[in-house]
Design a protein around this nucleic acid. Structure first.
Length: 216
DNA sequence: CTGATGATCAGCT
DNA sequence: GCTGATCATCAGT
């Protein structure tokens, strides 16, 4: 797909007024684009995780934790929250109203725009381009938190409503790298079943014919 | 190919 | 100093 000039970012209402778990599922198939210094890059969201605020033992805002690093989570819906983890960076969309620190972690991207630029940003071959939260940030060439607090309406990163794909089947699992009580572990990671850019996908589970998208 | 292990660094205490 | 919403490597199928 060639770089896009005409599109509509997802409205603020997309990120409010319903459970963050629902928002995380509806983000699958949406196109994320980034106007990087090297040119426009982007891809389809294939894996997400929901983080549900102060009650969620896996969330950065658990028990009201609130500091400089996670403050963007407390800002308005549709804002960007980037954080550092073990030498890498990861990317969240903030959901719900101000001061309601919920968000959706973007964990996998199927490249669609500027793939050659993304490949140049990563040394690993094949699907390892962007099948994980830290990996996709390397592919986008984002290595800091400077875009924190920016809103999709006026950021060089955005998630748009045009050109979206529809998953044939959305699968769910426990969240990766989060170990908490059982009631919080089962249902908050969502992914396009059969898509190879989903992290931890086994080769035999890839649907090479459709990559897990509806084709008609 | 798959599962386990060590590396690594920003942010908090 | 310590702690991860992780990644690349390696040894065993």
């Amino acid at each position: 797909m060639a770089p896009l000039q005409n599109y509509h970012v997802l409205a603020d209402e997309f990120f409010t007024n319903r459970p963050t778990a629902d928002i995380a599922q509806d983000l699958l198939g949406k196109l994320l684009i980034y106007d990087s210094p090297a040119g426009q890059v982007g891809g389809y969201i294939v894996e997400t995780e929901a983080y549900l605020g102060t009650e969620d033992p896996g969330a950065h805002a658990y028990q009201g934790k609130h500091g400089r690093a996670n403050d963007p989570l407390y800002s308005e819906a549709g804002s960007i929250y980037i954080y550092a983890i073990r030498g890498f960076y990861a990317f969240d969309v903030v959901t719900q109203a101000n001061n309601e620190p919920q968000g959706v972690l973007i964990r996998g991207l199927e490249p669609a725009i500027g793939e050659s630029i993304m490949r140049h940003n990563r040394t690993r071959p094949g699907f390892e381009l962007s099948n994980g939260p830290g990996k996709l940030m390397q592919a986008l060439n984002i290595h800091d938190t400077k875009m924190n607090y920016q809103h999709f309406a006026d950021s060089s990163i955005k998630i748009i409503q045009d050109y979206a794909k529809i998953p044939r089947q959305v699968a769910q699992s426990q969240r990766i790298g989060v170990r908490t009580a059982a009631e919080w572990t089962d249902h908050y990671r969502y992914f396009v079943s059969g898509n190879p850019y989903v992290s931890k996908t086994r080769k035999r589970d890839i649907d090479f014919a459709t990559y897990g998208w509806k084709t008609n």
